[in-house]
């Protein structure tokens, strides 16, 4: 999934990667492309984790893990960081999801459970401001529930924001009229993906 998402990131892009599987995208960007990674706590030019013992507890990513800064990097304060996000300067944001609806609604911050500690971070800013929102996620939850649905049952992070989803089974676009299959994962057939999608999935055009 991460590798397939990385393939779609063009040379020169400014990219924000969400916590978890989206972080892996950076490992797979094809050779020869220069991509600048933004982390919303205040760094453009995020590099990989430091070698053991060489990290700085004050050089971290949005997931609060230690990282490095690549040559050409820059630090900035939070308001500037979110000017980059909210002002439409980030080209691509890759996020995880709990649910994506056929109209591009994204739910990825809360199950709405009354017992949960509500926490949203920068997800709502990213989906409202970044130019292209792409989701990387398993096609179904651990207990087999489809994550691609007609309408999200969880509280929304943003409405009508997702344009493309990369799952373990397929690449799916959200167009004006629902889910459109773009590509099947190797060895997966259309009927299988359709059965695990809780909304209409249009097949590849002939």
């Amino acid at each position: 999934m991460a590798k397939r998402a990385a393939f779609d990131i063009p040379d020169g892009a400014y990219v924000n990667l969400g916590i978890g599987i989206p972080e892996l995208v950076a490992k797979y960007v094809p050779e020869g492309r220069e991509v600048v990674y933004h982390t919303e706590n205040g760094l453009l030019g995020m590099g990989p984790s430091p070698a053991d013992g060489e990290g700085d507890p004050e050089l971290i990513n949005a997931g609060k893990r230690q990282i490095t800064a690549v040559p050409g990097a820059s630090y900035f304060h939070h308001a500037d960081s979110f000017v980059m996000i909210r002002g439409g300067h980030i080209d691509i944001c890759v996020l995880g999801a709990m649910q994506v609806s056929e109209t591009g609604d994204l739910a990825n911050w809360s199950t709405g459970s009354p017992d949960a500690i509500p926490a949203v971070g920068g997800a709502m800013d990213l989906v409202a401001g970044a130019n292209a929102i792409r989701v990387v996620t398993q096609h179904c939850t651990r207990d087999g529930q489809p994550k691609l649905v007609e309408a999200c049952s969880y509280p929304l992070t943003g409405a009508g924001v997702v344009k493309r989803v990369y799952t373990d089974l397929a690449v799916v676009d959200i167009s004006g009229d629902g889910f459109q299959l773009v590509e099947l994962a190797p060895g997966i057939d259309f009927e299988h993906v359709r059965d695990l999608t809780a909304a209409e999935l249009r097949p590849l055009p002939n």
């Binding site: 308001a79 979110f82 509500p118 926490a119 920068g122 709502m124 800013d125």
Partner: peptide, 15 residues
């Protein structure tokens, strides 16, 4: 009491 604010809205409110 918790007032939950999106991170960018929080920094912009402060700005």
């Amino acid at each position: 009491e918790l007032e939950l604010v999106p991170q960018g809205t929080l920094s912009e409110r402060i700005r």
